[in-house]
Design a protein around this nucleic acid. Structure first.
Lengths: 336, 336
DNA sequence: TTGAAAGCGCTAACAT
DNA sequence: ATGTTAGCGCTTTCAA
């Protein structure tokens, strides 16, 4: 906290009978310390259980060995999955990670909030990662890498997924099975990912020469409820779809529940495909065919890029795309 | 990062034509600033997009408004669920949260690691929360609250769950349904929670006068695999159990899978009950009867206690117990 | 190889 | 009501 009664570098110095600068040299392995002195200081550090203050360290030095992470919502399973990948990367490269969340400032607009967080973390980290930001311009000199930004042309290094291609793959698959009436339940319409998935749905139909039926497109918001409600609407149509493409796995789960409640068996009576492939998707019954975004990989790659930037490397471009791939878990047969 | 080219309090002061201390007063709403000056400074702060450096702030001041969180493993869904509760609390009380994870130092023993993290966070937070720590003595003056410590008599404020009572409730329930042969698949045997659940299993049988059959107890480690393997062993016994009590929900999922693979229908042929009730448990099919630990509530309460301590309040005792409760999702009928 | 001293950005006395 | 000043714990010149 602050009025820290913890042992400081001064106490270590006194106990080891050296100056603070010598202790600092030992801490940072500067090398220009006599072997004997080095060991004595190390011993004292050990004995006193000394840990240098992150606050003081980051105030003076360029490098802290800590990476900052900002997430829109810690509770978001999607963001959490990204964190898994980040975690792998920091372990691999020997960095520490600080995740910052604010309880207050809900009244501030997202871009403002993000900027505030970045400059906050900026003071104690070597670089910052942001998940699904609403802006990509940040008032900082230290590197920033954004993951899945909700911005068309990011102005900083960004890692994105091939949402459009993934949605197209789903449509190719379903159409290939013989489906002609395919319903779609969308994600949060203000998000780029949702727009791209819808686009893939539409273009997939177009490519196959199947006319677009507006009745078959339902709004959603990436929740299970949206899937449930949307599926009910779709299945009650005079001419219901034989397959439903849900904007994410949770929505797909809602679809399956609605179908069941209406006495339909999945996949016998209805084919269901989802986007995303979070770990809990594995618990679904029946197993769900999904588009795997390698969400955690986005986190991993973003961290790798960030660490490269910290080390002074400069990647080719600003954008890095992680390919999606279709995982067929349960055959979605044609009903025709 | 550090060589922060960000705007500092000095630049704000110069732009607003006041001294740094006046800016500091405005920032901290000290009140003894002229209305006019206050507004001018606020305007400049806004204009320059100034954010005070966490590092510098925490070095000088007692209060940072930030709470630190240390988790054994960010990937652990149990710990994540606790974080949900913490998140609710910090939102409620207007604090910020910093989660600290280290990629390196895997070689250090857990207690040492925890101490290191605490003193690290200590320098930038007002208090620290630790999930399932291996120690409860920390070299810090700022308050620490531990959640579900793996220590019998914690030496700092601790929030724990009534694991034993919960396990007992499961046994009462199953025995009440008529079950006499009840299998048990344990959790990580080095953890207190696992020991207490096993104890509840054994005492539940004893209470009902049912002799303990060692064959019915399988080791586990809180994973799905452990449930799968353990259930296979149990169900292949000459005299297999009619019900299985799994140490947590993931293990229960493994049990269900094993039973299915052996041609048994749950719950018709086998009753399954789990401990824990993470959100993904809701996706299980058939619905699982579990002991809800209110895991997130543990996080919430711990945060409340910590904030109280920060504010100088002193709770009654060191220990706070969160009651568990049995959630009956699917009737576990007797097979006798 | 080591120490002394300056100063990072900020807050909190103490002056005015 | 505002400014001046002394550090917080650390790293980093610069001297010795």
């Amino acid at each position: 906290m602050a009025r820290n009664r913890n042992v400081t570098i001064r106490e270590v110095a006194r106990a080891a009978n050296v100056s603070v600068s010598t202790v600092s040299r030992v801490l940072n392995n500067k090398g220009d310390v006599a072997q004997e002195t080095y060991e004595r200081v190390r011993a004292v550090i050990e004995e006193l259980g000394y840990t240098s203050s992150l606050a003081a360290r980051s105030m003076r030095s360029r490098r802290t060995g800590v990476i900052g992470l900002i997430m829109p919502d810690v509770e978001d399973p999607y963001a959490f999955q990204i964190m898994r990948g980040i975690n792998r990367a920091i372990a691999q490269y020997g960095y520490d990670l600080i995740l910052y969340t604010s309880g207050s400032t809900k009244k501030v607009s997202p871009p403002e909030r993000e900027k505030r967080y970045v400059s906050l973390l900026d003071s104690i980290t070597d670089g910052v990662l942001i998940v699904t930001p609403a802006t990509t311009t940040f008032p900082t000199s230290s590197p920033v890498v954004v993951i899945d930004p909700n911005i068309d042309e990011p102005e900083c290094h960004a890692v994105i997924a091939t949402n459009y291609a993934g949605a197209l793959a789903v449509m190719d698959y379903l159409i290939g099975l013989g489906h002609r009436r395919i319903g779609f339940i969308g994600g949060r319409p203000e998000l780029k990912s949702a727009i791209q998935r819808l686009q893939g749905y539409q273009d997939g139909l177009r490519k196959a020469g199947i006319p677009l039926d507006p009745d078959l497109i339902q709004n959603g918001d990436y929740t299970q409820e949206a899937g449930f409600v949307g599926a009910q609407r779709l299945l009650r149509l005079p001419n219901p779809p034989t397959a439903i493409f849900a904007a994410n796995d949770q929505t797909a789960f809602g679809v399956i529940q609605a179908a069941r409640q209406m006495g339909l068996e999945v996949p016998r009576d209805l084919s269901v495909v989802g986007f995303d492939n979070l770990p809990e998707t594995a618990y679904f019954n029946p197993p769900l065919t999904t588009v795997d975004q390698s969400i955690d990989k986005m986190g991993y790659v973003a961290t790798e890029i960030l660490i490269g930037l910290i080390r002074g490397e400069s990647p080719n471009g600003l954008l890095y795309e992680i390919p999606t791939r279709l995982i067929i878990r349960e055959s979605c047969r044609s009903l025709l």
